[in-house]
Nucleic acid binder design. Sequence first.
DNA 1: GAGTTTATGAAAAATATTTTTCAGTCAAGA
DNA 2: TCTTGACTGAAAAATATTTTTCATAAACTC
Lengths: 282, 282
Amino acid sequence: MQVRKRIEAAASDMTASERKLAATLLADYPFAGLASIQDLGRKAEVSAPSISRFVAKIGLGGYQEFQRDLIAELKEGQQSPVEVHRADRAVNGGYLNDFIARAADQMQVAGDAITQAQFDRICRLLSEPKRKIFVIGGRISDTIAKHLSFHLRQARTGVFHIPDSTEVWPEYLLRMKQGDILFMVDFRRYQANLAVLAETASATVGARIILMTDRWLSPIAKHASEILPVPIESGTLWDTYSPALAVTEALVTRIAEDNWDETRDRIKAWDALRLPQQDMIK
Amino acid sequence: MQVRKRIEAAASDMTASERKLAATLLADYPFAGLASIQDLGRKAEVSAPSISRFVAKIGLGGYQEFQRDLIAELKEGQQSPVEVHRADRAVNGGYLNDFIARAADQMQVAGDAITQAQFDRICRLLSEPKRKIFVIGGRISDTIAKHLSFHLRQARTGVFHIPDSTEVWPEYLLRMKQGDILFMVDFRRYQANLAVLAETASATVGARIILMTDRWLSPIAKHASEILPVPIESGTLWDTYSPALAVTEALVTRIAEDNWDETRDRIKAWDALRLPQQDMIK
DNA sequence: GAGTTTATGAAAAATATTTTTCAGTCAAGA
DNA sequence: TCTTGACTGAAAAATATTTTTCATAAACTC
């Protein structure tokens, strides 16, 4: 139940100081309740014990629980940017447009959650030629990981995409050296085997792990030295990976731009090898 | 100064656990910071002392001051969410945000370019249980195609992802019946072999081709009965596939929602088979 | 590879916060 | 006016929270 409702429900049966308290609380709801019990006491001109009793009276376990509830409400009620946005353009509707608007908003959120410095740092790490780069993702998110490794491979040497099958993992682990990068993408419905891989790579080999994950943080987080948090809630049945893809693309594009000379040469060389085969079809 | 800005400002000079902390904080800003230092520590997989030091580093007097600031911001922002949001955006620029803004624009374009009627029609085609669905993409765009087939497979039977290697294609072609769907994703640097596949499938087998492509229209277009045009120019060195992914996600989400009962059952059955293996790792 | 620096968390200490106890106050009724 | 009972806050006690200290581990440098 909402805290506000609880207060209203108990209103008929309140003492003088409790009413003072209730008024103070509701006058600046829910922020007044976020101060310490002392501060709130001062503000409402009521002693701390009265507050303690009040909180018990409205059926909560204690002042801390009371605050937790308020925060939860606030978070809940926090009008998501999506809603704000949608109100903005109320007109255009349609399933697709709606979906896209949400995805676009989540992308914005991703942009805000990743600092510029972090972005630069990760680009730099992925650019250093001495480090090898190993890339892997989860069942679904491997598509994102593939995108990364594919483009990274055009910009530099030493990029390996680790296959799904755990059987060949040791082979890749053996190839890793200290300081090499293991870039992992893991979104919810985290895979236990990826966590094991992370553990091994960081503990045994000394690889540096860069993790792209959602806000609940995959268990890999504890081994990671860089975390790229990306929102994935689309407000629908399934998650959206568009923000993750956008961030990935931003990374690889930046890296390619920074190393343009090498990238251009590599693409050229690569095309020369690929084109003759391209039309080969039975 | 906003706490978020403080974090960004200090980002260049952070240790590993501080970065983890920053990521956690920003991923669920500002609510993550409203928990107790212990809880936050648990969430970010970092010790309480590290948080204490972190808070000092970003120039605040202590955890309590940090929380007070967050609450003040929250209260501030509550007044006029839209304005605050806008203001935020304007300031922070940077490569990533810039990139994301472009991608978001392109997504809008995609939304406008696909009519609601077409979107619905394609969803319906992909939902009809009698038609089998074959999916394939180009070298890079197969990422998008994989996403489609993966999710589609959760909503229905008879979904096949055609592998890269041309050698096995005939096998798939033999399996196709008139009226089956061949969903192809092909962006510039079109692959000749895909065009051949399209030609064969439509002329010989009588499959219906749905094509997702960019505005230059892949050579497959002439065989396609539905074309989903998606913009891919990012204004940078490389193209962006975010709009394509967003459209794909919109499709599969809509389809799953429309066939929710079946989808739910399939996912459940699927999980039952998958979970026991999930932890299987050497 | 040895030595130095730096970062980290466990434990202890310090601090802040909340709850309980308890004595005083006040109002209502005899 | 006295008694009774409920309400209140000061102070103490109990808790929870935060910060400091310190030993260890990791990373970096020469």
